[in-house]
Amino acid sequence: MTSAADVPPEDDLLAAEYALGVLPQAERLALQQRLATDQELARRVWFWEEQMAPMAAAIAPVEPPAALLADVERRLFPAAPEAAGWWESLRFWQGLSAALLCLVVIAGGLAVLVSRQPPVGGYVVELSSTPSGLQLAAYYDARSGTLKLNRVAGVPAAGRDYQLWVIAGQNPPVSLGVLPADSVVALKLPPQLAAKLGAKAVLAVSDEPKGGSPTGLPTGAVLAAAPLTAI
């Protein structure tokens, strides 16, 4: 942060008046033009904005209309495929999937997978989706970084693929790749992906165009999602 001594005294006052917002319109516009090229003046504006900002604590937050974010996103990403709602649907499926986990007697593939593995450093998850009929059991061996998948039921529609994602904490989903056609597969994860799997990580499956999401993030419906459970 520069000090006031780095700019002419008149400029520092203008910076303060600009940050406060009191300048008459013509002077305000003239100062904005100068800010584009005058770095020292800009630094003084930033200083004043920073100093004054705590006054905004007196302003009550007001929820904006729910549709406003979608309007902003339409303006910013006009050509993007419709990714809206993935997180909402994810939350929905997390809830549903957790409920299913309590009800479903885990049989078949998962039991087999688990019984073959040492019980330390392992995680399991079952992903089920009623509309698509997808049922997927996964076992992750943290020590070897191997993710074993057993698709018990469900195939993607023609021209579509199922894509597997891992979500660690508040981070955006990271693709683990398109689900192979084989019902049972073992994927050796590269270390940077393996690092994302572990307690509290969520696995999710979304419905994507053939070959996987073109954007690197889920673009289609999130079919199922559930957190990994340590075993």
Binding site: A56, I59, A60, P61, V62, E63, P64, L68, L69
Partner: peptide
């Protein structure tokens, strides 16, 4: 957004 909407509204 709620905070910044408050600022704009004010």
């Amino acid at each position: 957004s709620a905070k910044l909407f408050g600022v704009c509204l004010r």
